[in-house]
Design a protein around this nucleic acid. Structure first.
Length: 994
DNA sequence: ACGTACACCTA
DNA sequence: GTAGGTGTACGTC
């Protein structure tokens, strides 16, 4: 090698991993041998070598080598046994490709270099420095940041997959430091994938800032005490000992004993026939043809090469019938959930036959069969789909998941769907799970102007929907989903009903409310010990996000089929627990039937008048602007009123007002409470702030945000109800949240006038009166309360009368207000602190109230103590319908954590029972209306209120039916000791109906 | 871009 | 004192 020569060094090992994950999972047609990375590698080499011939473009290599890792035993492992310790075994599909890529390198007539004890990066570093010393140029074909430390004016990197050169400016742009400081930067940040320790909390940005400031790592360490940020300084000082080790690990060796001298890396002519023979063996038809053309070989006459392959020849993972896994599993009984709806009656029997070990046994069996992406099929033709559906019909159950263009089921378009089933219904623990993905609406990334650029080889959407309709509407096939309401609503929009289903999210919610969240990812982590592919890793996030139809089908298959696979596994684990733990009724009566009800409500949406909101927004803007001027005047300067920080500085710094309190982070508190107190002390500014906040809150959260939720086609607003978001059984509403539309102030109530009925219709609002206090009266069996509700007496006045000895007739409003606060406090798990806060009285006085209340209502005290004891003993409390809410931290040694959990545990049965009641009402409502031939559509639920839309002429008939259903919703499961009362009214808009 | 704090709307 | 969701500011990456 001489000055002016150009050495190309390909990071073979790096390429394999990157290509495997970035490129479609291609398999050899004849035997399903995975060859995606090999194909990518061959195409890349071919391109590099052909470009090299064309001397008019780019750089021309004179020397060329492909470098590989030899094994995981390296000198780094010697000095630090944890190095790359958390690296997982390569995916099964990748394993055979390591050898194949070496074979490919030889077929290209290129040197294939590896060295025991060293990583490819060290060999690359050594050659690069040697060549540089001679005066040659070097191009490293890799995008690995670990190699960036090698970049100099003569050593460049080239990312072949992105066709991007990485030289000094690119390194600085990406990492904020020049290449020679990359070692210091990597030492500081460490590398979680390779298990290289670094400074916790220091990422690339901070590291770059520090290196910019101090020059290099040694100086930084020597002058670490000068770092201003406390936390940063402490972390660096604490990591002082470990940093030299990190540096050793990230520093590439430039003196590895490479056996092949530089000169031997000279680029030799292409051996056309040899390369064609190899490519033919790989069955890469188009590349084979191209190579044959360029090399002038006769394609037909060349026999495929005999390529040695280290491959077990199987397309699936560990043996599912592994006797060891079998032995670990408990005896298995057959769950009888094939026909939904028959589960509720079997609680007794099933509980006896389903030992706790059952679920654990299944967990063990499933854990022994790790999720294996390589087994997933992409289904691209109807025949293939039919084969899969035959398997599904034999089994009678299938996990089902849709992939769409949007998280909003009302806007989403179907892009594909995944299915997973199991081949052995009698003993699902040992059956083989098959999962597939059926793309139907993937578009090509370039975005064809005509026809939307649908990717080829997808089942036509019409045919796919027909097949889905057959499957989903079939009562004899159990569909298993995770948050099926989403998929069901989507399918409804395509005219397809989902009949006979289970929902793993809801099963988990019934089993484990209070024990973490119920999303698929968290359930998978918790029960399967498996982290599914993150959506953002498939579709990107933030600015780089693409909708699912833009995702490469191979990646989509891995992601989507995995979701169905995981859902099926979760169902196998969780479903048996329902019966075993006596929760089948809760699931069958309070959860599953609500799915369709909510899907319909979401689909209907509610009409919102844009003009009204727009007019309100203008008014609010004007009022706010007026107040703003006054605020600046009073403050003596302009500032961001919306910034509590700036506001605090004005009020308590500049103006020096007294009565300041701090938030838990040490900022001045500018809460409404604080501002009210200041206003009461005669300060004019705080009142303005409170007013300004009210106006801007109404404007930004409601009048400005709501129009954005008007659906372009339906012209209505469709909220989304979360069934498993709260711990107590309540629903949650989002996008938009229609459960927090203002009502308290006259100003806020105006927002409600924008929620209107269609012409000729009215909105009917029906709400439970005092449902939580009624539930409390029932559950705690409080005679006075029961009597008061039976007599229809004002409950707060009655409470006040009992406590303060004032007659109910002519009750002073302030006394009643206090009693009302106490009643609410009881429901919330009262504390003197909280009551004092609420009423603005001393804690001691609040304590006295509570004491007096408990004296008058000893049953409440007893009930609260019983509830706390139950939570402590069992870890959960229950609603009157048997819904369980867990409090895993109820026995915390931290008194405030414990007290918080106790209050929540007291509240949960009350709030939760009320939530159960309205769920029952909602489930019965539509059949009841239909039976009475009333065309009223249930639109919204706001915890104790239901909102309907009905033709004007039918409202009078509708109200008694609605009231009847709601008031008797607890029956026959529970015969309540107090009547439930419902107020209902019809009007043109929500404000007047409420 | 993302997470957290704060504030504030509801039952 | 319970249960939620959302908008804005602001700090971090």
């Amino acid at each position: 090698m001489k000055k002016g020569d150009h050495l190309f060094l390909v990071d073979g090992s790096g390429f394999i991993f990157r290509a495997f994950h970035a490129l479609p999972a291609l398999t050899r047609k004849s035997d399903k041998l995975p060859v995606g990375a090999v194909a990518g590698f061959c195409n890349m080499l071919w391109k590099l070598l052909t470009d090299a011939r064309d001397t008019s473009v780019g750089v021309t290599p004179t020397h060329f080598a492909v470098i590989f890792d030899y094994s995981s035993k390296t000198f780094r492992k010697e000095i630090y046994p944890d190095y790359k310790a958390n690296r997982q075994a390569p995916p099964e599909d990748l394993v055979p490709q390591f050898g194949l890529i070496r074979e490919a390198t030889r077929a290209f007539n290129l040197p294939c270099i590896e060295l025991e004890g060293y990583e490819a990066d060290d060999i690359i570093a050594t050659y690069a420095r040697q060549a540089e010393a001679i005066g040659a140029d070097v191009t490293i074909i890799s995008s690995d940041k670990d190699l960036m430390q090698l970049v100099t004016p003569n050593v460049h990197m080239y990312d072949s997959m992105k066709d991007k050169q990485i030289s000094i400016p690119e390194v600085i742009e990406k990492w904020g430091v020049p290449p020679e400081k990359m070692i210091d930067l990597q030492s500081l940040t460490g590398d979680s994938t390779d298990n290289v320790p670094g400074v916790p909390g220091i990422g690339p940005k901070t590291a770059a800032t520090l290196l910019e400031q101090f020059g290099d790592l040694d100086t930084l360490l020597a002058r670490a005490h000068e770092i201003k940020q406390d936390k940063r300084r402490e972390s660096i000082l604490a990591a002082r000992e470990i940093l030299p080790l990190s540096k050793m690990l990230v520093t590439l060796k430039t003196d590895t004993p490479v056996g092949v001298p530089l000169g031997d890396l000279e680029l030799k002519p292409q051996d056309g026939p040899r390369l064609v023979a190899f490519l033919k063996a790989m069955e890469f038809t188009s590349l084979t043809r191209r190579v044959a053309e360029v090399c002038g070989c006769d394609l037909a006459s060349i026999e495929p090469a005999e390529v040695p392959i280290e491959w077990n020849g199987k397309a699936h993972g560990p043996d599912l019938d592994d006797p060891a896994a079998e032995a670990k599993a408990a005896p298995v009984t057959t769950p009888k959930e094939k026909s939904p709806g028959n589960g509720a009656g079997e609680i007794g029997q099933d509980a006896a036959h389903l030992p706790k070990a059952f679920a654990e046994g299944r967990a063990a069996a499933l854990a022994a069969r790790p999720v294996d992406h390589s087994t997933y099929e992409t289904i691209r033709d109807p025949a293939h789909l039919n084969r899969f559906l035959t398997l599904v019909r034999e089994t009678g159950l299938v996990a089902f998941d849709t992939e769409t263009t949007s998280l909003d089921a009302m806007q989403a378009e179907l892009v594909g769907f995944s299915l997973a089933t199991i081949d052995n219904r009698t003993d699902p623990s040992s059956g083989t799970i098959s999962a597939c993905y059926v793309p139907v609406g993937h578009k090509s990334g370039t975005g064809d102007l005509l026809g939307g650029g649908l990717v080829e080889n997808q089942i036509p959407i019409k045919d796919a929907l027909a097949a889905l309709k057959d499957l989903l509407e079939d009562e004899t096939i159990l569909k298993i989903g995770q948050n099926l309401k989403y998929d069901a609503l989507l399918m409804r929009r395509y005219g397809i009903a989902v009949r006979a289903f289970d929902d793993t999210m809801l099963i988990s919610y019934v089993l484990d409310a209070g024990n973490g969240t119920h999303g698929m990812d968290s359930l998978s982590e918790r029960w399967l010990g498996h982290t599914p592919i993150a959506f953002k890793d498939v579709a990107g996030s933030g600015k780089g996000a693409v909708s699912f139809d833009q995702v490469d089908i191979a990646r989509a298959t891995a992601y989507a089929a995995e979701d169905a696979d995981v859902t099926l596994r979760l169902w196998l684990l969780l479903k048996p627990r329902l019966a075993a733990e006596g929760l089948m009724r809760v699931y069958e009566r309070l959860e599953r039937p609500l799915v369709d009800v909510l899907a319909r409500m979401e689909e209907r949406g509610i009409s919102v008048d844009r003009q009204i909101l727009s007019r309100l927004s203008g008014e609010l803007a004007q009022s706010a602007a007026r107040i703003e001027d006054e605020i600046y005047e009073l403050a003596g300067e302009r500032f961001n009123i919306g910034s509590p920080k700036q506001l605090g500085d004005i009020l308590f710094g500049k103006m020096g007002l007294s009565g300041a309190t701090k938030t838990k982070t040490g900022q001045w508190s500018t809460s409404a409470q604080v501002l009210e107190d200041l206003a009461a002390a005669g300060e004019p500014l705080p009142r303005r702030i409170v007013d300004w906040r009210q106006l801007t809150k109404l404007k930004s959260t409601y009048t400005d945000a709501l129009p954005g939720y008007i659906h372009p086609q339906t012209k209505r607003v469709h909220t989304s109800y979360a069934m498993a978001a709260t711990t107590t059984g309540r629903l949650a509403s989002s996008e938009p949240n229609l459960q927090n539309i203002p009502v308290r102030t006259a100003e806020g109530r105006k927002i409600r006038t924008a929620f209107i009925a269609e012409p000729g219709n009215l909105l009917v609002s029906a709400d439970y009166s005092q449902i939580e206090l009624r539930v409390l009266a029932h559950a705690a069996e409080i005679p006075q309360l029961v009597q008061a509700f039976a007599d229809g007496i004002d409950i707060h006045a009655m409470t006040a009368s009992e406590m303060f000895g004032v007659p109910v007739e002519g009750m002073p409003s302030d006394i009643r207000r206090r009693a009302k606060a106490i009643n609410f406090g009881i429901i919330y798990g009262i504390s003197a602190f909280g009551l004092a806060n609420q009423l603005g009285i001393e804690r001691s006085e609040a304590g006295d109230y509570i004491k007096r209340y408990f004296e008058r209502f000893p049953g409440i005290k007893a009930y609260m103590e019983e509830t706390k004891a139950k939570a402590r003993d069992l870890g959960y409390v229950e609603t009157i319908f048997g819904r369980r809410i867990h409090y895993p931290e109820i026995r915390s040694s931290n008194p405030s954590v414990r007290a918080f959990n106790e209050r929540a545990a007291i509240n949960a049965p009350i709030q939760g029972s009320a939530a159960d009641v309205i769920r029952r009402a909602m489930i019965r409502m539509e059949p009841a209306l239909e039976e009475n031939r009333i065309n009223a559509r249930m639109l919204l639920q706001v915890h104790d209120e239901l909102i309907f839309e009905a033709p004007e002429a039918e409202c009078e008939k509708a109200i008694p039916v609605i009231r009847q259903v709601m008031e008797h919703a607890a029956m026959p499961a529970i015969s309540m000791k107090v009547p439930l009362a419902v107020d209902a009214r019809a009007a043109k808009n929500w404000d007047e109906a409420h």
